[in-house]
Simulated assay, not measured.
Amino acid sequence: MQTTTVPELLKRGPIVLDGAMATELEKRGVKTDNALWSATAMLDHPQAIAAVHQSYFDAGAQITITNTYQANVPAFVHAGIPAPRARQLIQDAVKIAQEARTDYAASHPDFQALIAGSIGSYGAYLADGSEYTGKYHLDEVAYQEFHRERLGLIMAVGVDLLAVETMPRLDEVQALVHLINQQWPQQRYWVSFSIRDPQTLSDGTPLAKAARWVAQQSNVVAVGVNCTTLENVEPALRTLRAAVDLPLIVYPNSGDEYDPQTKTWQPTERSHQFDTYVPRWLAAGANIIGGCCRTTPKDIQTIARLVRQN
């Protein structure tokens, strides 16, 4: 398998990112309706995680994201898992992605893919939907203390880049990016925000302001939005493109709607309509496209086909 980077891949055209982890784990019998979410699979179903990674490679993904979004030591400890075991599980998640890539490359000699280490927000750790509201606040030191251990564990194993994702607050991103640049000054990463609407982060910060701050930082390879509706993406891209010259990354949800009362997802007329939306996103300046909640390998296959046609 040849090694590559985001800038090198972008020279050939838009990049295809993978899709949802939890949705595909559930199809493989893993229960994710708990505070650990998809990180639950690290305990008893590591082979299912590997199978999900490979299913996205098969679909055309050029970047796969580690199953560490909700995986942090305090969350595991709160679930009754000793801290040393929790640390090993986080590192195992990175190793599973590495091994899935190696195994896939063994039968696909021209295959190239990057591994992005997922860093979810403090709001995700709270497991109460705060990553979509931004209704929490720590100072910079406290944000960094929360993120430092997981970052260190992931970096010790090694990833091609970091996915600083579903971030509802600019101050948390600032603290996290400062930490990355201080402790791992060569590490590349992207920042993807959780938004209230196509112009505004969940915490009320203008998206353009947040993107401009990110664009001024070292080693950032892309900025964008994720875990939002399909219809939010195009106007968000226009907001971003007017503000920065960085590559833009988008990976929205499938179009299904979440019912907080029943804690279930319901299909809508927009569900899985990537055929309709992706050409618009490409025209609006998207450089990296994938999927978030409820998206599937079939959706990523559709994205890959449309990107190739671009």
Rank of each mutant, 00 (worst) to 15 (best):
A39T: 08
A50L: 00
T166F: 00
Y56L: 00
P235Y: 08
R188Q: 15
Q2D: 12
D299S: 02
D160A: 14
D128W: 09
T228Y: 04
L151A: 07
A156G: 11
N232I: 08
T32G: 04
T64M: 14
P109R: 13
G291A: 00
L162V: 02
E24Q: 05
A35Q: 14
I65L: 11
A50P: 05
V77D: 01
T32S: 02
G80F: 01
D171W: 07
L161M: 15
Q216A: 14
A286N: 06
W190T: 08
A83N: 04
P247C: 08
P185V: 05
R238T: 11
Q70K: 15
N34K: 13
D33N: 13
V278I: 10
A127R: 15
T133N: 09
V177N: 00
R196N: 15
I96Q: 02
P206H: 09
N219T: 14
P198I: 05
K298H: 03
V250Q: 01
Y104F: 09
V214N: 06
D259P: 13
I115F: 05
N226P: 07
P82F: 02
P84C: 01
H147Y: 03
E8R: 12
A243R: 11
A283N: 12
D245I: 11
F193Q: 07
N219E: 09
Y122V: 00
N67F: 04
